[in-house]
Design a protein around this nucleic acid. Sequence first.
RNA 1: GGGUCCGUGGUCUAGCUUGGUAGGAUGCUGGCCUUGGGAGCCAGUGGUCCCCGGUUCAAAUCCGGGCGGACCCA
Length: 485
Amino acid sequence: MTEKVEASLPDKEKNMSEWYTEILERGEVVDIRYGVKGFIVYRPFGMEIMKNIIKLYEEELEKTGHRPFLFPVVIPERNLRKEKEHIKGFEGEVFWIEKGGHTPLEERLALRPTSETAIYPLYSLWLKSYRDLPFKAYQTVTVYRYETKATRPLLRGREFLWIETHNVYTTGEEARAQTREDAEIFWEVTYKKLGIPFLHIRREEYDKFPGAVETYAFDTLMPDGRVLQIGTTHYLGTNFTKVFDVIIHDEKGDQRHPHSTCFGIGLSRILASILLVHGDEYGMVLPFEIAPLQVVIIPIYKTGFDNEAIDKYCIEIRNKLMEEGVKVVFDNTEKSPGEKYYYYDMRGVPFRIEIGPREYQNNTVTVFRRDVRKRETIDKKELLNYIREKSRDILETLRKRAEERLANAIIEVRTKEELMKYVKEDRRRIFKVYFCGREDCAKEIKNELGGYETRGIPTDEEDKRGKCIWCGSEDAHIAYLAKAY
RNA sequence: GGGUCCGUGGUCUAGCUUGGUAGGAUGCUGGCCUUGGGAGCCAGUGGUCCCCGGUUCAAAUCCGGGCGGACCCA
């Protein structure tokens, strides 16, 4: 039976902002009171989740041949300016260091907004032969962008955490194949392990990463109907290897510029997505694998009963779970059971075990599952298998729920009239339309549809052709329109 | 980018219009009692009223500037 108890939080769909602000604070995820706009503090619980998320992506990257490295946070101005499109795209949002102590620096230093221009000068020293390729590396770091739009904790900050890969290949074909591997890596973790579904999109020409030849993005859906870009991967061609003089000898002994890619995994936004997509009115709901606390054991004492025996019974179970590598806590603090339930619900603990006289006497345990909010009493001996099995169930349930919401948000529209009709409705959607790909057309759409913008082309339908829903021109491709963060 | 609102113990908040004692709730600490969805009672603890400047005998309160935050619209 599903428990009907008083909710802790406002309704996520109706009032996402308030829900989100509250869960960040009450769940001790981040602290927004640092006092510098766009900069936040990860509190221990939030950072524990983050570290678990990072580990999943890093493992997948290393499995596919990426090696870790770490570059400085500062980039000399002359390097940042080398690639023309790149600097044009980032110039307005770079933080500059201009002084060391009281002395003005001879050359200003940028806090990296992304690391291409930090990394490529070294690539020109490291990579000399086709034998040095492919070169696949990543770093997990913070980057800095002076955002002028409203900042929001984790969703849009002036400092944010990400993983960036920077790969180099002899040929363009190999490099393009890397963008597809990036998509697989992203799928493997984001969808399969975190239960977050997303759209795989090729961005329009005018929406590309500054300096890229092709940009692919991963957009997920927020409870308020807006989409959020949580990752991007770019084919950079030889744009960066040229300006940074990365030159290799190929098999024939000819000198050439290798091709490169980069892949950004938006860790801050992924954490936000996990909270927003899976959470409910009682707090976070975390997939078992990334939960800092996976099981909590709560004793129910009774006056006149042998409460020490209940303690012993709980400790025995805790120790057994610990031996199996489960992150478990036995909470025998003096708070009432109800208060503890609310506390651990808020923190998304996947399983709660309640043990009182009844369980003690019957050699059973009562297990509460956070995602579906159901209790079940089982034999003590079955506990470990139960948790193993149901933790997979939790992930399935969360993923299925999220996937349905994403699928339900998307609607194919063929005519402008139809589009206008849907836009006027209360509900936000992701429209799938034919679109010509021209920037002025995109601007008109954004202006006249009250903020709905072109998000790009679904990668599994790049070949389809039709008439642009806006200007009517032929040879338009399929594109998504959505409101975005 | 445009607009609206806000900043007071750890947290939430009253007080601000009409200048003069910082009040409450919650948390925290100790004690008693209790424990199957946020219990209760008693005692204690905790505040540069966001910052800088101005007006004034006197500023949380009025004025100017700054910093930070929330929400709505584009």
